[in-house]
Design a protein around this nucleic acid. Structure first.
Length: 491
RNA sequence: GGUACCUUGGCCGAGUGGUUAGGCACCGGUCUGCAAAACCGUCUACGGCGGUUCGAAUCCGCCAGGUACCUCCA
């Protein structure tokens, strides 16, 4: 009964009780970023979604090995020559060094994830570091007869595979329909059927990322890395594979085919997919050119943004929707999230001001149970948040003298926030956390406000308002309370 | 064209048959030197049409609109 986690499995499109294969260990694999561009809001969704899962599974007592890959074997080609600088291009240092680009964007990705308080995964394998494993996997699939070589490239034989197994079990597609709808693409002539997909591709002269293989100097196919690396680090069968919904087909379908073709059985037990972030109702994505990078959110430096948003606002905004729903970006929605989160933080900071007042009129344990219930229901973070707002209302109304709390309620409220808001939802107080000089800073503000209290006592409204107005101009919000004052810094 | 999914009040978003989601915004009240915040209260809903049911936002059908995937994409 207690803490039975149900997760929605894309394989059968319903919520299932999560039972690990080898409790207490849990293997979790999530498709990570392709590091050829700045991370945008869309990248934050799966990172945060599976961060919540990682945190919750860990909290439930599982020992989670969380693997999130880095795709760095993209099809990078030399820039088209501009005519002028062909000589320069011959100098090695003047050429694009793919790993330099990878490193640059990977650093930026990590920085953004850190800002969003996304915990680092247990292993972050690079596709480029697992070429040997990928070549081995191609060999295995060839040996089993589900692939063929053609012109130095190797393709997966989807039709043959589909006779023995089921190609399309995840995405609900069938092969006839695919044969009719797949468009003509490069390399089509090498493939026997349009549905076949590349396991290994021979590099054309412009391709600068290339590795030796039994078939050609080339590079691994698009779907290979996840199959090879999940197998290496999590085993032939593991618990959960996650990623964005846009990866269901073809990427994850092909992963299944590759695993099954090489080992004869399924590798993934639960497939989880987060939905997209939309902008004006449309998917935010690189190909549509309608994305806003995380850095632009943090700085406010984008024409569609009316202000800067701190990373915790972005995180809270994402968590206010269930991960399988689309969430539509707008300044209005983000501002609502910002205010809502501030409300929770203020309530939390007010826990120290709670007053014991006889017979308790609230049931904190029931609230905690509801939070667990929501988490167990396929990570229903918006429900958890709504229960935390209920806790915030309890705190505020106690301070306003309208709700009675018993002594034992107070540590329970505090632990409710610590567990759900901070540990599991991964929110943090950006001003205080990791800020060694916060105490001195806070005392200086307190001192100013005490001077203001003195001025108020003397009915010196000019001085009192001057202090308040100038602090307000600096971004502080000053509140007078019955016993004194409260302040916070709006970032 | 095929497949899957979606359509909740001013905005964002929960909710899978009967009980208030929640946040933001708005309005009224309390408090306040003025404010701010907080508290209390009020108000806007379930795309359309049919059906099942004692009862549907929730199940079924049709219609309308939208999105995603089918091509690298979180």
């Amino acid at each position: 009964m207690e803490n039975q986690l149900y997760i929605y499995n894309t394989l059968d499109r319903k919520k299932e009780l999560f039972v690990p294969l080898h409790a207490p260990s849990v293997g979790l694999y999530v498709c990570g970023p392709t590091v050829y561009g700045d991370p945008h809001l869309g990248h934050a969704r799966p990172a945060i979604t599976f961060d919540i899962l990682f945190r919750y599974l860990t909290h439930l007592g599982y020992k989670v090995r969380y693997v999130r890959n880095i795709t760095d074997v993209g099809h990078l080609e030399n820039d088209a020559d501009e005519g002028e600088d062909k000589v320069a291009k011959k100098a090695r240092l003047e050429q694009v060094e793919p790993m330099e680009i990878v490193q640059y964007y990977l650093n930026r990705y990590h920085k953004a994830m850190d800002a969003l308080n996304v915990l680092p995964p247990s292993i972050e394998p690079h596709a480029s570091g697992h070429i040997i494993e990928q070549i081995q996997l191609v060999k295995e699939i060839l040996d089993k007869g589900y692939a063929y070589e053609s012109g130095g490239s190797v393709y997966f034989n989807v039709e043959k595979y589909n006779k023995d197994y089921h190609y399309g079990k995840l995405s609900g597609r069938n092969i006839e329909e695919l044969l009719n709808t797949t468009r003509d693409l490069d390399g089509q002539q090498e493939k026997r059927k349009s549905v076949d997909f590349a396991l290994w591709k021979k590099a054309s002269p412009e391709h600068i990322m290339r590795w030796p293989s039994p078939w050609s100097y080339g590079f691994p196919g698009w779907h290979l890395e996840c199959t090879a690396m999940s197998k290496k680090y999590l085993g032939e069968t593991f618990d959960i594979h996650g990623g964005g919904m846009d990866l269901v087909f073809p990427h994850h379908e092909c992963e299944i085919a590759q695993s099954v073709a090489s080992t004869g059985h399924d590798s993934v037990r639960y497939w989880m997919h987060n939905n997209m972030i939309t902008i004006n109702g449309q998917k935010m994505g690189k190909s549509l050119g309608n994305f806003i990078t995380l850095e632009e959110f943090f700085t406010g430096n984008h024409k569609m943004l009316t202000q800067a948003y701190n990373p915790m606002t972005i995180r809270f905004f994402i968590l206010q929707a269930q991960y399988r729903s689309t969430v539509d970006f707008s300044n209005e929605a983000l501002q609502a999230s910002e205010k809502g989160f501030n409300r929770l933080m203020e309530a939390y900071n007010n826990i120290e001001n709670l007053k014991v007042s006889g017979q308790s009129t609230v049931d904190i344990n029931a609230l905690k149970a509801k939070c667990y219930e929501a988490m167990n229901d396929d990570l229903n973070t918006p429900m958890v948040i709504s229960h935390l707002f209920e806790a915030a209302r309890i705190i505020n109304s106690n301070i306003a003298g309208q709700t009675n709390l018993a002594q034992e309620d107070i540590p329970e409220i505090e632990s409710l926030f610590k567990l759900f808001l901070f540990d599991l939802l991964g929110m943090k107080d950006e001003l205080k956390d990791g800020n060694a000089s916060y105490d001195a800073f806070a005392k200086a503000i307190d001192m100013l406000l005490e001077m203001r209290m003195q001025a108020k006592a003397n009915k010196d409204w000019a001085t009192s308002d001057k202090i308040r107005n100038e602090l307000t101009a600096l971004g502080f919000e000053i509140k007078d309370t019955k016993d004194g004052f409260e302040w916070k810094l709006n970032k």
